[in-house]
Write a protein that binds this DNA or RNA. Structure first.
Lengths: 204, 204
DNA sequence: GTCTATACACAGATAGAC
DNA sequence: GTCTATCTGTGTATAGAC
């Protein structure tokens, strides 16, 4: 409604001595991953940020709000992959989703890591789990469509296949560490090769 | 010091009204999985067991001892699979290990689930992680050997291949629920098929 | 926006009666 | 072997000064 378009959503970003919310969130998520969300005290968060607890509470109303915003970041990224799943055949769309999921996972590594550790211990966590399940259901439908068109083997239940696929993809957060370059794209290629072609030597 | 040999390590097992350690552990692990280890209070454990906290402390000296015994159960099972990995070729031994890992995972589902959620937050957790890493190293050596004999594709780093394989296998704890019958063996066959042959329809 | 001080609940663990 | 009562530390969150 303003005549002058804002360059981005951020109001002004006037905090010089302290943190803005994004930077605080980034560090908090890192601590959550290192120590576990439940095991992380607000005191230890504040210490890591070089702030007092009160200053932290000035930016976020609770420890759980930090979690909620972080989970939304991860879920938004994954849902975006489904949103622009172009491709003619179901197989192509499935490959696009798998490839994109790996890229999001690498790009938002910490946020997705946190998401994958959520167990439904609170309302915020349960809502995140439900969004994950919705994502899963849409991928499962894609696998089923690929089976119907004959491009994915039909002797495996599509729901089991999806879970094994994403079990493989999601496990990347356990060991992948960025190393510069286009590591994410390389990794996505390897994952697609193993997921669709298997580990056996096809020349054997 | 006693002339009469005991039938096993258990002193006598004279507790009728209460629990023996194994049964208490089983229930405690279930609660740890539902609520998360850190988020589970000793009070809530006691409540679930229908005991007071003090009674629980009579059987286990700390909450962490419960965790330690549970992790040992899971790790012992996995290490056992490596111990009796027969088979002539590396490929056969690798298949044996994958198959056996799935069976252990299904058989000791709760214990392995707990193990896979450990993040190194204490000495006990770090020791468990180290045993997991040792297991991984031995599997990675097996993958490398299979690559050398030409039965596993060589265009993928053996360490990455191992991690993707066990990412798939380990993710089973997220969704598999026993349903009677020989579900574990069926599941192991599916996992082997996907891991080695891939999801693509080979007739396409 | 940051601080110190503090409220109040609950954590893990223990004492000691029965 | 189980209980009630309690110790001591730490948890999340807030009050109010600067």
């Amino acid at each position: 409604m303003d005549a002058v378009p804002a360059p981005d959503q951020t109001p002004v970003r006037r905090g010089r001595p302290g943190y803005d919310r994004d930077r605080m969130l980034e560090i908090a998520v890192q601590v959550f991953i290192e120590q576990g969300y439940d095991a992380t005290s607000v005191a230890s968060l504040a210490e890591r940020l070089g702030l007092s607890k009160s200053a932290l509470y000035h930016h976020f109303s609770s420890k759980e709000e930090l979690l909620e915003v972080a989970l939304d970041e991860a879920l938004g990224g994954l849902e975006g992959v489904l949103a622009d799943a172009g491709g003619r055949s179901a197989r192509e769309r499935l490959e696009h989703v798998l490839h994109g999921a790996v890229l999001v996972l690498v790009d938002k590594l910490a946020y997705v890591t946190l998401l994958l550790r959520v167990r439904g211990n609170s309302e915020v966590e349960r809502a995140a789990l439900e969004r994950r399940r919705a994502f899963d259901r849409r991928v499962t439908a894609l696998v089923r469509a690929a089976q119907d068109e004959g491009t994915v083997r039909s002797d495996i239940d599509p729901s089991v296949a999806t879970r094994l696929l994403f079990g493989m993809v999601n496990s990347i957060v356990e060991w992948y560490r960025p190393s510069g370059g286009e590591g994410g794209a390389d990794l996505a290629r390897v994952v697609l090769a193993v997921a669709l072609g298997g580990l056996a030597d096809e020349t054997g």
